[in-house]
Design a protein around this nucleic acid. Structure first.
Lengths: 382, 382
DNA sequence: CTGAAAGCGCTTACAG
DNA sequence: CTGAAAGCGCTTACAG
């Protein structure tokens, strides 16, 4: 047994298990290493090489089993062919597994098509949370890639500003207004989506609409509210919209009854990860004995993804397409095909569903005439 | 406007937008580039640096926003803190979205905990399929990472052998027998899982068991069959097991009736992506008027993941745990904490379900006495 | 305790 | 059409 100094490797182990380099191919083919690079790489000057040399090099490469070292290639070429994906939390959550998946599907497809691999940054590790220095390093790590996609609600402005300052390509999935509009993004057009839903409701005859939004001030939530307001305003004078911020726990039969007594014939709520507002609303309707959609219409600014085949009227955010377009846009930014902040909004697809219908013919008085339980019995079996 | 030769970049643009290198930090701190490397890298010699120097360098690095270039680190024979994930197909399939997700959840968690990021290789692009050379390059790309996890049924032996030869750390998720047992893996113990199910059935009183397997010769399928055979053999002389290879389309009421008339009281089948065999079996049972589990018991070597709350007797493959352990093992291989092929099998969790019960008291004759339709009517409402 | 140097395996101007 | 050289941004012995 020989004593070996740890880490002391012979200059070039001739074990045969070592991976052949361009230099080895060059030696075998009797050309220079640079020529090998020219022949094997997909450079435009390839045409400037003699057919004979090319064949000789190709043969030598094949017989030696040469495979380019991607690391060296990337260091030299200053590109990694890697697209970063930063999620601020687990990219693969178990609780709300739907959250990122559709985006990732699109991102992967576009990346594969365009010849990029994906670098998934495994959320901020516990030790980094709250520590600004470490957190900053976490975000800066994205520079390993040629560019980076950001998902999730957090926007670390200082870090992103720094990245933007070095012209590091960034694309957000979801609209972001931070950093003075300098962030590129591919988002959903909630205004258009809300208009689809509101127009559908107004077309059915509804005149008093209630919009129930959560208490979270995220862009997706604010944009939905904004879309609702605009769509109602665009519907003309006869249509009244009301917006209420609510916790799911405060949405119960009593509240619902009060709304209905005030003449509200449809409640629109927002989609979120858990759709707790929708669930609370459906429960409240059941308890209040309101048939859907005969007595009450319910719509969602978004989609109920908790059930495979949900029938709630709403719209589908084109998540996969957003992922694809975001990745494609990022590649354009990386290659220089585009520049500057690019901001796209993709229009959702309207989902007619079965939870909306014409408003009940009876006025508010009719609602209060029946007790909830009686109504429920009658409605279900009548 | 100045004419610029394409690609001609100044030696070192002083725009401040460029990404800082160790050399820049060194200049700012008034030390050599190598000292910066020593201070910033996590090398053991770190202690041999004066506190003053370290602080100066750290300060300069922070103020410049220095982030080490992982590609350069990797080339310089260090590590990238990257774990590769190679899937041979889309990592995020849309059709059978359950397939990789649970593994990825575990992989991400372990990676995050251990301080690694994930490099997802975006499946073989269409142009690479079938082309050996390009395909080989696709697999070789994994060397960008410190090590790589492989998922999926394909095992490109030549490529993996090459990686193994350069001692590149590889861990398969799922048992693999290729390459003469030199592949490390973390798999599911199907033999143990099958024993759980068979023991349960025999304990209920079943003596004639039929195992219906698909026609695909993948390890997971073969291992299940093997597990079934062994468990039956271990049950003693009174228990008979039969194995049948079948397409889902060939499993119908007639076939089922024939089996039952031969005294088979329970049909066990295998889990696969679509669980088509299980579906065919349930349909056949319904058409044959066999109540489950009163007239016929049905069990799965695996789990029915098509429904959120499936009640089929079977076992759950600990997919998330497999992902976690595979990633942790890979890290051990990368750091040298372990070496050589390491092969782990994780025991599944038994799922009692509601599709198995004691065998029907009546013998085969009883089965043929009734016509299917009559039986169905009587069974459902009697 | 710190610096100068070599080298990882490529790509890319630049000469010949 | 091909070669010699520099350089990508690091790490790691090896000197001082």
């Amino acid at each position: 047994m020989t004593t070996r100094v740890p880490g002391s490797t012979p200059p070039r182990p001739n074990t045969g298990s070592a991976r052949p380099r361009q230099a080895d191919v060059a030696a075998a083919a009797g050309v220079s290493q640079a020529t090998v690079s020219l022949v094997l790489g997909d450079n435009p000057e390839r045409l400037a090489l003699s057919e004979a040399t090319r064949e000789r090099v190709a043969l030598a490469a094949r017989s030696l089993g040469y495979v380019p070292n991607p690391v060296a290639r990337r260091l030299a070429a200053a590109s990694t062919d890697l697209l970063g994906v930063f999620t601020f939390s687990h990219a693969f959550p178990v609780e709300v597994r739907d959250s990122y998946y559709p985006f990732l599907v699109g991102v992967e497809r576009a990346a594969a098509r365009l010849g990029y691999d994906l670098l998934l940054f495994t959320g901020t590790s516990p030790s980094n949370v709250g520590d600004d220095g470490a957190d900053s390093a976490a975000v800066q790590k994205v520079r390993l890639a040629d560019g980076c996609l950001f998902l999730g609600r957090r926007v670390p402005e200082v870090e992103l500003d720094r990245l933007l300052a070095c012209r590091f390509p960034i694309v957000y999935i979801g609209r972001r207004t931070e950093l003075g509009g300098r962030l590129s993004y591919v988002g959903a057009d909630y205004v258009a989506g809300a208009a689809q839903v509101v127009d559908h409701l107004v077309g059915l005859g509804h005149r008093r609409l209630l919009y129930l939004r959560g208490t979270d001030d995220v862009v997706a939530s604010t944009d939905r509210e904004d879309g609702f307001r605009r769509a109602v305003a665009a519907s003309g004078e006869g249509v009244q919209g009301e917006v209420l911020r609510a916790y799911a726990t405060s949405v119960d039969a009593r509240a619902l009854r009060a709304w209905r007594e005030r003449g509200i014939s449809v409640v629109v709520t927002e989609e979120n990860d858990t759709n707790d507002l929708l669930a609370a609303l459906l429960t409240a309707a059941r308890e209040d004995g309101a048939r859907i959609p005969q007595d009450l219409s319910i719509a969602l600014l978004g989609e109920d993804r908790s059930l495979p085949e949900s029938e709630v009227t709403g719209f589908r955010i084109p998540r996969q397409q957003m992922g694809e377009e975001a990745a494609a846009l990022l590649v354009d930014l990386v290659t220089g095909a585009r520049s500057g902040p690019v901001q796209w909004l993709l229009e959702p697809t309207f989902l007619p569903g079965t939870t909306t219908g014409p408003p009940a013919v009876s006025g508010p008085a009719a609602v209060s005439e029946r007790t909830p339980s009686t109504a429920a019995e009658g409605d279900l079996h009548g």
